[in-house]
Amino acid sequence: MSFSEIFLGILEGLDVTLTVTAFGLLFAIPFALVAGVAQQFLTGWKRAPVTAIIEFWRSTPILVLMFMFYYTLPVAGVYLNATTVAAMTLGLHIGAYGSQSVRAALQALDRGQVEAGLAIGLTRWQVLLTIELPQMAVAMLPTFVNQFIQLVKGTALVALITMTDMTARAKELSQLTFDPPAIYGALMLAYFLLLYPATVLGRHLERVVGRRSGRLNGGRAGDV
């Protein structure tokens, strides 16, 4: 098998990689926002369950989560298909990390912004939606891109719950041709081509946001 045949063979798994990524985002983004905001807003004992949920998803290895939900839930009579399990475990794992960026961004925002919003008669909820979240979204973009990259890389694990993504295709091919250097080289190349644009985008956003926040803080661009 030539290198390009191997490469094209691996790309047959691209749709699975992309599907899991896309559905993963559907879990990750809402979870990061809701959990991060809840952790920041709730106080006392009400906060404990939110923290517990975040820590559950964040502190368990993704692979363990996948096995747990794919192989042990059926024992309880719950059958989830592999795509759902993959998207959910990856999405919530990455989303749990994302929630901490959300919380950090909320904390970093000048308190005067909230006070000014309240002082003109907005409710706390309106302040969150119209003043805090829009400013945070910009500040968090670079972090979100990095977490997106983590999510894509995490999809390599879905091979272990029977899905045929790019990594699973590579394993299949290696059993056919016994040419690991070419096969895993091609696999690395495939991930690189997929993710490099994202890292470039992330770096670009970091620069843009850095410039903007420098301006937002009255020109103290050197402060980090």
Binding site: Q113, A119, I120, T123, Q126, Q135
Partner: peptide, 28 residues
């Protein structure tokens, strides 16, 4: 009761006009 702060606390992501209209459209 309107309030004006020492640090102005304008909303940096909105234009001057939107800073002024925000509460009128949302709260009123």
């Amino acid at each position: 009761v309107g309030m004006v702060f020492q640090q102005f606390n304008l909303f940096p992501h909105l234009t001057v006009l939107r800073n002024c209209t925000l509460a009128m459209t949302r709260a009123l």
